[in-house]
């Protein structure tokens, strides 16, 4: 088993992202919501675009330059951003981490 602290498999990244999301949601009292790969940012967690900016900040803090959230949503239009799932971000993050390992 690897002893790297930043493992690049989906389960670990999901756990890390969930933590960030919970921080974001904590003051809204929704920190006990279930977060899975299928959870949507907008419908399930009720995050708005402004919150996503905050999330991008947290991602930068945690992963530095290795994960560019801005690029991630750059290609998407409004409908797609609203329907984004945690899983899509997880996969993007994993891919970014592996590419920059």
């Amino acid at each position: 088993m690897s002893i790297e602290t930043t493992a690049t498999d989906e389960a670990t990244v999901l756990a890390q992202l969930s933590g960030m999301l919970r921080e974001l949601l904590e003051e809204y009292g929704l920190d006990d919501a279930e977060i899975t790969m299928d959870t949507t940012f907008h419908d399930d967690l009720e995050l708005e675009s402004v919150d996503l900016v905050a999330l991008s900040g947290q991602l930068r803090e945690h992963y530095g330059d290795r994960v560019n959230f801005a690029t991630f949503i750059a290609e998407r239009d409004l409908d797609e951003i609203i329907a984004l799932t945690v899983g899509e971000l997880v996969r993007y993050t994993v891919a970014s981490l592996r590419a920059t390992a």
Binding site: L52, V53, S56, R60, D65, N68, F69, A70, T71, I73, A74
Partner: peptide, 10 residues
């Protein structure tokens, strides 16, 4: 430029 710096821009 902003995106490369990790800042969301549209």
């Amino acid at each position: 430029r902003f995106r490369d710096a990790g800042i969301v821009a549209q």
